[in-house]
């Protein structure tokens, strides 16, 4: 675009503005059509929105416990009437997250060596890398549902589901870390007569260990969240208690359990955040 006079400039800008107007109108039109279509398929209407909002407000209103200043002790006691069971379930949830992170690490780390281009070549690299990517695309809840059918209700299904997702996710992340490792140290170990295992043990691991720790802690945070929701399909932990409370319309139980979950998530996030800073 160039011009030598005001008249030419006006011509150029006029056509440019017209083009911009058309594309902007087009984009807005496409957006509105898609939104209308989606709203229809998703069974949303302005009326449904209003009803939904008031239903949600009503639900939240019922969740608020009745705490009075004079009788805070007994009120809290009746709100958390089942505190023992819930705490037990909550500790199960934390343990599920812990166990599945450990299993995920133990399986994911060795796989990551195979899935790194600078350590493994040929079909093994390709197959393992793609497999890890494929497995991690499926949400852990889907695994949990299938595993509940195979292993029965309870924590075993949940641990294996979250561990499977963790292993693939950590394997993928670790392999990316491995690929950024310095190749000169590999050569040093190789020139000393070291084989593949020696290279991994003495050249790779010392370089990547801090990143491994950091990613594993991050995974643990995420697994805490996953471990709470897999209970909704019967795979153990606090989610199972929450599912029962929601389905039986025990509003105050719902708020009591949700509050416990939120506090746990916050504490774990903060702790892991601090631990991560120690290592990096």
């Amino acid at each position: 675009m160039s011009w030598s006079s005001l008249i030419e400039f006006e011509e150029v800008t006029r056509s440019k503005r017209a083009r911009e107007l058309i594309s902007a109108t087009g984009a807005v039109a496409v957006f509105i059509v898609l939104l209308a279509l989606s709203a229809r398929i998703g069974e949303v209407s302005p009326q449904a929105l209003l009803d939904g909002a008031s239903a949600a407000a009503d639900y939240i209103g019922r969740m608020v416990p009745s705490l009075h200043f004079n009788t805070v002790g007994p009120d809290l006691k009746s709100w958390y009437w089942s505190a023992g069971t819930w705490l037990n379930a909550l500790s199960d949830t934390i343990l599920i997250a812990f166990l599945s992170t450990v299993i995920g690490f133990v399986i994911g780390a060795p796989l990551s060596f195979v899935a790194s281009r600078n350590l493994t070549s040929g079909w093994a690299y390709f197959v393992v890398r793609r497999l890890l990517e494929l497995i991690r695309t499926v949400p852990s809840l889907v695994y949990a549902m299938a595993f509940v059918l195979a292993f029965g209700l309870g924590a075993t299904a949940g641990i294996l589901a979250v561990a499977l997702h963790s292993a693939s996710s950590l394997g993928k992340l670790f392999s990316e870390v491995n690929e950024t490792a310095d190749g000169k140290t590999f050569e040093a170990v190789q020139s000393a007569g070291g084989g593949w295992f020696s290279v991994v043990r003495f050249a790779l691991l010392p370089q990547v260990a801090p990143a491994y720790v950091s990613y594993t802690l991050l995974r643990f945070e995420k697994n805490i969240r996953s471990a709470t929701i897999i209970g909704l399909v019967g795979a153990g932990g606090i989610g199972q208690e929450l599912f029962v409370a929601i389905r039986s319309f025990q509003y105050q139980d719902v708020s009591a359990i949700v509050l416990m979950i939120i506090c746990t998530v916050m504490v774990v996030d903060m702790t892991c955040d601090r631990a991560r800073r120690l290592f990096t």
């Binding site: 998703g42 449904a48 939904g52 239903a55 949600a56 909704l232 929601i246 319309f249 949700v258």
Partner: peptide, 19 residues
């Protein structure tokens, strides 16, 4: 609170619908 928990809550508030 995970989105799935919100979904469960809203299913019991507005019924079995994508809404």
């Amino acid at each position: 609170v995970d989105v799935l928990i919100w979904a469960l809550i809203f299913v019991s508030a507005v019924g079995l619908t994508p809404f």
